[in-house]
């Protein structure tokens, strides 16, 4: 019983980390209607920027973190302007493929800039285990989960309460309508990309603290896709809920099913869930159902 609760707890904490990466997908999708398949690469790129400021240039933490956030915001605007602005109004296939192209390109560039070998990521939150009654978990995961909850609250506030965020939602609904209401589609999409890069970098900090970083870590982006889809591509609060569901499911599959399947169950579980959602309810739990008119 204690074991079961421990798995459950680990699943929830991991799920919240998945959810923050899922949030980066959602923030970009909410404005640009682009599902950025390069998300994992963006997370790792953000992680490498932080690494460069802390471990490479050895700045103290309170200078390095703001500096890296500024750097990724600039990067986000650049990526949007260079790659995605020419794609406004192009086919969905072209939009998907440009994110795939970005994914491959960023992988290659990361190897050129930072090499292919794994590097230790600086310890931002201490790794000492927290022991609470019979349960124990690492402090960094716990703090990461709290940070992701805070990010969710802030992002929800931005999208639901501020003028900017409401503008972004309008752009997500319909580019033409947004334009005719006086909202700049181009600027909104730029802001969305900058926000997406900030969230990705925060995800990298919480996820990688004390771990090792190399370009292969970007697989996490694909693993977060089922979370995005289960929660709904447009829903900010769907992500933590879906993240917890998938995190718990994965943890339980790892604990009870992996020994019979040579470790496949926990890896396959999120994607099987994803296929089921796509068949039953493609818009996810809280997503918007788009009705098509001829």
């Amino acid at each position: 019983m204690i074991d079961f609760l421990q798995y459950l707890l680990n699943g929830i904490l991991i799920g919240l980390l998945y959810a923050i990466i899922a949030l980066a997908f959602i923030v970009i999708y909410r404005a640009g209607r682009i599902l950025n398949l390069a998300q994992g690469e963006v997370v790792v790129f953000g992680g490498f920027v932080v690494w460069t400021f802390i471990a490479g240039a050895s700045f103290p933490l309170w200078i390095a973190l703001p500096l890296s956030l500024i750097a990724v915001v600039v990067l986000g605007f650049m990526v949007e302007k260079g790659f995605f602005r020419p794609m406004i109004g192009q086919s969905i296939f072209a939009n998907i493929m440009i994110t795939v192209g970005l994914m491959v390109l960023m992988r290659g560039l990361m190897i050129v800039f930072w090499g292919a070998s794994a590097r230790p990521f600086p310890v931002i939150f201490s790794l000492k285990p927290i022991i609470f009654g019979p349960f124990s978990f690492t402090r960094s995961i716990f703090i990461g989960a709290i940070i992701s909850l805070a990010v969710f609250i802030v992002m929800n506030w931005i999208f639901e309460k501020t003028r900017w965020g409401l503008g972004l939602s309008t752009v997500a609904e319909n580019h033409v309508v947004a334009q005719s209401m006086g909202i700049s589609v181009k600027r909104s999409i730029g802001i969305a990309w900058a926000l997406g890069f900030i969230v990705s970098t925060l995800a990298a900090i919480t996820f990688l603290s004390g771990q090792s970083i190399n370009f292969l870590v970007s697989e996490i982006g694909l693993r977060a896709l089922p979370v995005v889809l289960l929660g709904g591509l447009e829903s900010i609060w769907g992500a933590p809920l879906a993240g917890i569901l998938i995190g718990v499911g994965e943890a339980l599959a790892a604990a009870y099913l992996d020994k019979y399947t040579m470790g496949a169950a926990s890896e396959a579980f999120p994607f099987i869930i994803m296929l089921v959602i796509l068949l039953i309810r493609p818009q996810g739990i809280f997503g918007w159902k788009i009705i098509e008119r001829v």
Binding site: G101, L102, G108, I111, V112
Partner: peptide, 27 residues
């Protein structure tokens, strides 16, 4: 570019060319 050596270098070159070609042709 000596810092990216061997197998990884070949891999990164492939990735940069593939990603670059996809993006350039799309745009």
């Amino acid at each position: 570019f000596p810092q990216a050596g061997g197998e990884a270098l070949w891999y990164s070159g492939m990735n940069i060319v593939l990603g670059g070609v996809i993006i350039l042709f799309l745009i």
